[in-house]
Design a protein around this nucleic acid. Structure first.
Length: 452
RNA sequence: GGCGACGUGGCGGAGUGGCUACGCAGCGGCCUGCAAAGCCGUUUACCCGAGUUCGAGUCUCGGCGUCGCCUCCA
């Protein structure tokens, strides 16, 4: 079996995927905070890890993918106050949009999508354990993690404790014993309309502890892969790692897998910058095939540029796959093309190199196009299924079946062609073109193809 | 300032110490009545300088430039 290797942010090295239990892989990915519609940058980790799960499953692994939904966060309260509505309603609405928008990507749903609001017991229990272990302390209804009590702090983001602060001089600064410390639990505030009971009074959990608790609840500590955008490495993932390893004595995850940012122009796409393209808009304008091909067209760790040109290009690539779909037949693929299929999977096994895998897929297509006669499409379908793009081979839908009028015109054109009446033949072809049909002549006869 | 990463052909984007990435666009050709689709070709692509090496875009050092994180952030 192929050795699967992944770049680990903690060690900075390619690590072999080494499951706790042979054949089983747990992946936890930080999902969005639901205070607005998500943009294509938010969609990147969703797609990367959904497709990675498909790849791992295609090589026989049993994968459990967990993507949380953060529905307790400052941003939600701020947005709710601005909208003059209960934060609970806003979060519920935006969570529903998130599900709907990502559903349209058609890459499958995660196996679990825990909500912070439904994980309070686990969160409170983890905080209690940290206090008991001497890594956290209560202060006037808040609870803070004591960063200096955990010597390994900084190991993930490769920074020294001297170089960071957790918002000194901002919220809770007077209650912290050390400016480095970060909040695990925050006492409720007057402008917040959501709070939960705890041993420290009414309040709400900090963002970092939510993920530690939800990840552990779903997968157990020391699970295989923790993912997310590389903008989360510090402080979010650093803090998650510190919390769980302090409380449990084992790392939260064995491999930290971070995706690069989507860039709009030269800058990171971010709501705070305002240069966002919402996912539902991108899907409506370009279709999910093009959005997917665009996202998979770059290596997950690299920045990915977003622009109209990129989507035009992705659509053209999708079209090339649709064209080969008209050419291939059911059944086994020629042995001569096997090398491309093998290298496709090799590329994905080697730090999930989707652009290299796509290159092999397109090489398969080119070679198939060069062959004479029928070409079985089994291998191509296998590759496309991993990428959730096998729909491109499924051919015309009902609405793409030529109408009887169109077929009559095609017949009339054949009559004209048989009589070498090219002017009439071309006139009919123009008529068909206006009706949305492209004529393609082949040895086997003419055919009509729906214009894209 | 600290930490991390990156600079590849018109554009996007992989990759390896010596062998065509791939896609998109343009141009030329084949095929076609003409097209479309497809195929073939497209003349030292690897930021600059120095070094290591038989040989470097690929390793080392030094520049220049860009991006991300250090504050909520996928």
């Amino acid at each position: 079996m192929r050795q699967i290797r992944i770049h680990d942010s903690l060690t900075g090295e390619l690590l072999d995927l080494a499951p706790r239990e042979p054949g089983k892989v747990g992946i936890y990915v930080c999902g969005p905070t639901v205070y607005g519609r998500i943009h294509v940058g938010n969609a990147r980790p969703f797609v990367v890890f959904a497709i990675y799960k498909r790849f791992l499953e295609s090589v026989g692994l049993d994968v459990s993918l967990v993507c949380n939904i953060t529905d307790i966060n400052d941003k939600i309260y701020t947005a709710a106050v601005a909208a003059g509505r209960p934060s609970k309603d806003l979060a519920a609405e935006m969570a529903a949009f998130y599900i709907a928008d990502t559903d349209r990507l058609g890459v499958g749903r995660p196996d679990a999508e825990p909500l912070a609001t439904e994980s309070l017991d686990a969160i409170v229990a983890l905080i209690e354990d940290l206090i008991e272990a001497g890594n956290a302390y209560e202060a006037d209804g808040d609870v803070y993690f004591s960063v200096r009590s955990h010597p390994a702090y900084g190991e993930l983001s490769h920074r020294s404790i001297e170089d960071v602060d957790q918002g000194e001089g901002i919220e809770g600064a007077d209650r912290k014993r050390d400016p480095l410390d970060f909040a695990l639990w925050k006492q409720t505030k007057p402008d917040e309309d959501a709070a939960w009971p705890s041993p420290w009074g009414l309040g709400r959990p900090g963002w970092h502890i939510e993920c530690s608790a939800m990840a552990e609840a779903a997968l157990g500590a020391d699970f295989e892969i923790h993912g997310g955008g590389n903008d989360l490495v510090f402080p979010h993932h650093e803090n998650e790692q510190a919390q769980t390893s302090a409380a449990r004595g084992v790392p939260l995850a064995r491999i930290w897998m971070h995706n690069g940012m989507v860039q709009f122009g030269a800058e990171k796409m971010a709501k705070s910058v305002g240069n966002v393209l919402s996912l539902h808009e991108a899907l409506a304008d370009n279709g999910r095939d093009a959005v997917l091909i665009w996202l998979l067209g770059g290596h997950y760790r690299q920045p990915l540029s977003c622009s109209d040109e990129r989507f035009v290009e992705a659509k053209a690539r999708a079209q090339r796959i649709v064209e080969i779909g008209r050419r291939i037949t059911d059944g086994e693929s020629p042995e001569g093309l096997l090398q491309y299929r093998e290298r496709f999977f090799d590329a994905l096994a080697d730090d999930f190199n989707t652009p290299a895998a796509l290159a092999e897929l397109f090489s398969w297509i080119r070679e198939a196009n060069r062959l004479e006669g029928d070409v079985g499409g089994a291998d191509l379908r296998l590759m496309l299924e991993v990428l959730a793009l096998e729909n491109l081979l499924n051919g015309e839908s009902e609405s793409d079946q030529p109408s009887s009028e169109a077929l009559e015109l095609l017949l009339a054109r054949e009559t004209a062609r048989a009589a070498s009446d090219w002017a009439e033949a071309d006139r009919i072809r123009d008529l068909l073109d206006e009706a949305g049909w492209l004529v393609r002549d082949a040895e086997s006869g003419p055919s009509l193809v729906r214009k894209q």
